[in-house]
Amino acid sequence: MPKSSAIYIALLIIALLIGGTWIGQNVNLLPIDASTNASIYDELFKVLFSIGTILFLGMVGLVVYSLIRFRRKPGQIDDGIAIEDNLPLEIFWTAVPAIVILFVGLYSYDIYDRMGGMQTLNHDSEHHHQAMLNTQKIWGGIGSGSIESSTQNSMAELPIEVTALQFAFLFHYPQGDIISGELHVPIDQPVSMRLESKDVIHAFWVPEFRIKQDIIPGQPTVLNFTPTKAGRYPIICAELCGPYHGSMRSTVIVEEPKEYNEWFNKNAKEVITES
């Protein structure tokens, strides 16, 4: 290989790496991040997006280049060179993806752990009705107690019981015995939801929180999150649950503690003194 073309190729690869990384880091495809979970998610997303862009542009580049460079010219009637394999090259392109995959796997494990995915669920049980717990297993979704939120924030978790049914979500606040069609939560307050379905499988999804959990009948599930940005975000049912699945939506309202308390006190059946 001539020296100049080697330099040329090296430059191209560097440009691809830099360009891909830049696109991955700077092109935003996600809605705002409104929970502790979301910012961790976005880190992972950027890394995967960068790697993906490099790979995609690289492969497309190779294919398009080959098609143009090696197209059959008029009158060309010979065969290509009969290369059947090349062991070093094949080892190279087996090993590199394997290493990248290994890295991605370990990294996403770390992300998963930081989201609280590996936590045991026992600490949640205090908040919920003990009697129910003894008979039924509780399964944890991701975000069940984000480590970052529970260490930075030693606040007690706000327990909320969520009931999903065709075609609505109901939110029950055991403290104050409020039943609401919308979810109100104070900003920076860790929330621990207990999800239950009355009929078929539904799923609780808040895109801005990057959390989703199927709500499977017969399988009450705990899902935790800590909202970080005030605002109104959609709650969406993500699992086909019948004809009106598309309209099974609600809203989560993340507000300043003061506004939240106002809402709470206005609706509470029995007024609880703030601690």
Binding site: I40, Y41, L44, F45, L48, G52, V104, G105, S108, I111, Y112, M115, G117, G141, I142, G143, A203, W205, P207, R210, I211, K212, A238, E239
Partner: peptide, 13 residues
């Protein structure tokens, strides 16, 4: 990307 649990949670379904 979808194979990564934390990624998939958001975009599944």
């Amino acid at each position: 990307a979808l194979a990564q649990v934390p990624f998939d949670i958001h975009v599944h379904d």
